Simulated assay, not measured.
Amino acid sequence: MIPWSLLDKAQIPGGGGELRLMQRGAEFSIRLGQTELMNSRLSGSEEALATLSCAGIRTRERPRILIGGLGMGFTLRAALAAVVAEAEIIVAELAPAVVAWARGPMAELFQSSLTDPRVSILESDVGRLIRSGRSTYDAILLDVDNGPEGLSRKANDGLYDMVGLRAARAALRPGGVLAVWSSGPNKNFTQRLRKTGFDVDEVRVRANGARGGARHVIWIATHSDPTDKKVCF
């Protein structure tokens, strides 16, 4: 078997630990310590994060989408395939190294997504963008941790607590969607979403789509508005 090679490593801003980019043949892995955050062979649930979210806003003329976490670009590419030409997609990536890896050794994975005119890549904290928004986005997609708790850095807990969820709801337009990726279920998070005023659908998806793999969870939380007739799943 081909051994893994370390291509690069970088600290997550804010004391979140060390990210490592590994390669084995054509396969890439991004790891935080001994925990694998993502693997280029497993893209199904990251793609589902985008397709499930964009299904709820497909009739909007100029949707504005915020993606938290660039990763290996699977969510971004799926979002681009699912939205109209007039859409705007903002990707917030806290770690500059991840952006550099996307434009360097992993460029083939990203294809032309980084140069698509609908896309803006911001080296920024997605939480800051959420907190500064007021009815700004049609969808917010979060894939910055392995679930609704701060794995990559403790400050990310603020994305998933009641204060953070209220900020996300305020940043969404009526009928907008907050989607959160997780490696597994979390009953308390589902309850917090509902207490914040979201309509919640907890969807189980496979890590590698139709080809199987581990079962992951995506929360589709809709900023419900009885006057908005455009959103449906």
Rank of each mutant, 00 (worst) to 15 (best):
I2W: 12
I2V: 13
P3D: 09
W4S: 08
L6R: 04
D8S: 14
G15C: 14
L19D: 10
R20Q: 12
L21W: 09
L21S: 07
L21Y: 09
M22V: 06
F28S: 04
T35D: 12
L37K: 09
S43V: 13
S43M: 11
A50L: 04
T51L: 01
A55E: 02
G56D: 03
R58L: 05
T59C: 04
I65F: 03
L66S: 03
I67E: 01
G68H: 01
G69Y: 03
G69R: 00
L70N: 04
G71A: 12
G73Y: 05
T75I: 08
A78M: 06
A79K: 06
L80Q: 07
V83N: 04
V84C: 15
A85P: 13
I89C: 05
I90N: 02
V91L: 00
V91H: 02
E93Y: 02
V98G: 10
V99Q: 08
A100Y: 07
A102E: 00
A102D: 02
A102C: 01
M106E: 03
F110K: 05
F110Q: 08
S112K: 15
S112F: 11
S113A: 15
L114P: 06
P117K: 08
P117T: 12
R118A: 11
V119P: 06
S120K: 11
I121C: 00
S124G: 07
V126H: 01
V126Y: 00
R128Y: 07
L129Q: 10
L129S: 05
S132N: 13
T136A: 10
T136F: 01
Y137A: 01
N146Y: 01
N146C: 07
P148M: 00
E149V: 12
G150P: 11
L151R: 07
A155C: 13
N156S: 09
G158N: 12
L159P: 09
Y160S: 09
D161R: 09
M162D: 15
R166H: 12
A167Q: 11
A168M: 06
L172W: 04
L172T: 04
R173W: 02
V177I: 15
V177T: 14
A179C: 09
V180A: 01
W181C: 09
S182Y: 05
S183C: 14
S183R: 09
S183F: 04
G184M: 07
N186T: 09
F189I: 05
F189K: 08
Q191F: 10
K195M: 11
G197H: 01
V203M: 11
A207F: 01
N208D: 14
N208T: 12
G209K: 04
G213F: 00
G213C: 02
I220A: 02
S224T: 13
D228I: 07
K229N: 08
K230G: 13
K230L: 11
V231Q: 08
